[in-house]
Amino acid sequence: MKLSQLEPGQSGVIKEFTDLEMSVKLMEMGCLPGESIVVERYAPLGDPMAIRVSGYQLSLRKLEASTIILQ
């Protein structure tokens, strides 16, 4: 399951990444394997999305979210 497939309000736990370059940036921002993520909302036009991870809100594009694989 990819992060980008979740609906607002749904949550998941990060398992792995499909893109090395993106994963480095995501991990720096606190998206680590084992960390749980809640999808808070999508932008009015459907993209990007806002997620809650390690206690704060992060926004990222769906394309970027699709590199995060959930457990």
Partner: peptide, 11 residues
């Protein structure tokens, strides 16, 4: 290069 949009939304 590729572009990111990974951004903090502050309270």
């Amino acid at each position: 290069e590729r572009g990111y949009f990974i951004m903090e939304l502050p309270v």
